[in-house]
Design a protein around this nucleic acid. Structure first.
Length: 278
DNA sequence: AGTTGGACCTGACTGC
DNA sequence: TGCAGTCAGGTCCAAC
């Protein structure tokens, strides 16, 4: 559930808290969260290095260590991943998977109940050379995600628009919650073939994407009913109060009053208003 | 190359 | 009360 707005909220908080700190030790409590390399390799790559920059690519939180001849730490939060800044005396709990100790005594806990997340270290500070990040589609909040891009890519996509929106290779950072909210805001039915969108619908989709994501960032992300997301301080977001369709099956559409429905899509549920979305 | 569906994982919840 | 079954979903992989 952490998607772009949640990752961005955490990024901003980490930027405020841990820039300039040095990583003095790493404890891997659950090796399956370090699945792209041996835990020892991750430790060797990051220990002793200073945190110089906190970035984000799609849903991934990207930590640059020693920008010159340094390294990069990439966190994928999966469904239930959390990055918590913890005081010196804090103890890991049963969901703490990796602990980074900082030179000021504080700790960064990588928590993950369902263990779909992962963290990896690369001896490289150029994101373009980090394979999974390089393969992502454009950042939705950057100018490169625009109507021209949709015009160029969507004609080749026969899949449902909701599925294409969640495809990280098409655009980075959108998952279930925001795919639901974006198609609603754009008034496009989630099952529409991506290659059937009109010019006007593409414009609505681009604008809705940027508007919803910015709004959600402004509210600190979404902490939905189950698997509640928390930020780097352990606090909930506030966007769940502004959701129009996600997990609102049976509740009235805020625009027309019709009950929100859901249908199976990509092995998940897509929520939508049968009247407002065509 | 694009699309689809299953697997992974854990905890909460449902129903018998 | 107990326990099996179901659900949630980001990402990867295989198969078409």
């Amino acid at each position: 559930m952490p998607e772009l707005p949640e990752a961005e909220t955490i990024r901003r908080q980490l930027e405020h808290e841990i820039i300039g700190r040095r990583i003095v030790s790493v404890r891997v409590l659950r090796a399956s969260l370090v699945r792209r390399q041996a835990p020892e390799e991750l430790m060797r790559t990051v220990i002793g290095r200073s945190i110089e920059r906190i970035g984000r690519r799609g849903k991934a939180v990207v930590v640059t260590l020693d920008a010159k001849s340094g390294a990069t730490l990439v966190f994928h939060l999966g469904m239930t991943g959390q990055i918590l800044v913890a005081p010196r005396e804090a103890e890991p709990d049963r969901h703490t998977r990796v602990v980074f100790a900082l030179d000021d005594g504080r700790q960064v806990f990588f928590q993950d109940q369902r263990t779909f997340g992962d963290v990896a270290a690369y001896p490289e500070t150029d994101w373009r050379k980090i394979p999974d990040l390089a393969a992502y589609g454009p950042e939705p909040l950057k100018p490169a995600f625009n109507v021209r891009y949709l015009r160029q890519t969507l004609p080749r996509r026969s899949a449902k628009i909701q599925a294409v929106l969640m495809d990280q290779h098409f655009v980075a950072g959108i998952g279930k919650i925001y795919a639901d909210e974006i198609t609603y805001a754009a008034r496009i039915h989630p099952e529409r073939a991506a290659n059937s969108l009109s010019e006007q619908e593409m414009r609505r989709l681009v604008r809705a994407t940027k508007r919803i994501l910015r709004l959600a960032i402004g509210h600190g992300g979404t902490s939905a009913a189950d698997e509640k997301y928390v930020d780097a301080y352990g606090n909930y977001g506030g966007f769940q109060f502004l959701l129009n369709t996600y997990q609102r099956t049976g509740e009235p559409c805020r625009r027309c009053g019709r009950p929100i429905q859901h249908l199976p899509l990509q092995g998940r549920r897509a929520h939508f208003c049968p009247r407002c979305q065509r």
